[in-house]
């Protein structure tokens, strides 16, 4: 069984975010593997392991031929990667990104299952998995907290407000994986060394036949204003000296919630 995992390479989320002069997210400096995608990579490796055959291929769209995040996922055990990097991609919206990723999945060719996270850490539109599914005309099973594959079918536990639903579809299919559902492995030293020589297929927008459909012109949205959000004012702050709970009680009393 062959699994393609879409992995996003993002600016370090611990650093304060900033916008460039064109109002896109500043993506200079080293990018890292979005932690949300480490769960999909781990899930894919486990599924291929269970199947006993096949391999995991990564697909990533990122500026400046960035491979740091890909190398991390290759070191975890993925076999190879496709990297789409092209100046024409600046300003691409979520649908444009999905078009690129869907074409890259077709380029890989023999995927039974495509995994993504439920939403990225930096853009978090949460639309990419279903968009890729629709573009490929594959079913998209979203918010999976558990995945099983067998008999040409994929079965997931889909997170819901009230619990979870068991959802099944014939392969090939797309599934999005929620955070925290598997324990992503740490790359071993051997894995890190091996990752350096694993193939990364670098492609452009033209290679995918998407000229003119992505980037600013394809996005059909324009930022018209960016401003600071109104701040909420802080109120009283008291040091607890053994009776602060009384302040809470009187506060709640005044609000008539008790």
């Amino acid at each position: 069984m062959n699994v393609v995992v879409c992995v996003k390479q993002i600016p370090d989320p611990a650093a304060p975010g900033a916008l460039d002069s064109d109002n896109t997210l500043t993506r200079e400096g080293k990018l890292i593997l979005d932690e949300s995608d480490s769960f999909g990579v781990e899930m894919a490796l486990q599924l291929v392991d269970t199947a006993g055959e096949g391999e995991v291929t990564l697909v990533s769209m990122a500026p400046n031929n960035e491979v740091s995040g890909l190398r991390t996922a290759l070191a975890m055990g993925a076999a190879k990667a496709v990297l789409i990097s092209d100046e024409a991609l600046a300003g691409t919206d979520a649908l444009g990104t999905a078009k690129v990723l869907a074409k890259a999945v077709e380029r890989v060719g023999d995927a039974d299952l495509v995994l993504t996270s439920t939403e990225s850490t930096d853009g978090y539109t949460g639309t990419i998995p279903t968009q890729i599914g629709q573009l490929l005309d594959w079913p998209a099973l979203t918010f999976a907290k558990h995945i099983e594959v067998g008999d040409g079918k994929v079965t997931i536990q889909r997170q819901t407000e009230a619990g979870y639903d068991t959802v099944e579809a014939p392969l090939p299919a797309v599934a999005s994986v929620t955070a925290g559902v598997v324990e992503p492995r740490y790359p071993s030293f051997k894995g890190i060394m091996a990752a350096k020589n694993k193939p990364v297929d670098e492609v452009t927008v033209a290679d995918l036949g998407l000229d003119g459909q992505v980037g600013w012109s394809g996005a059909h949205q324009a930022i018209t204003a960016v401003e600071a959000a109104p701040e909420r004012e802080a109120g009283e702050k008291i040091e607890d000296e053994g009776d602060a709970h009384e302040n809470i009680v009187s506060f709640l009393d005044e609000l008539k919630v008790i």
Partner: peptide
């Protein structure tokens, strides 16, 4: 897209 079926709800 409609081939993804809900088998049961927990």
């Amino acid at each position: 897209a409609g081939e993804a079926k809900v088998l049961d709800r927990h």
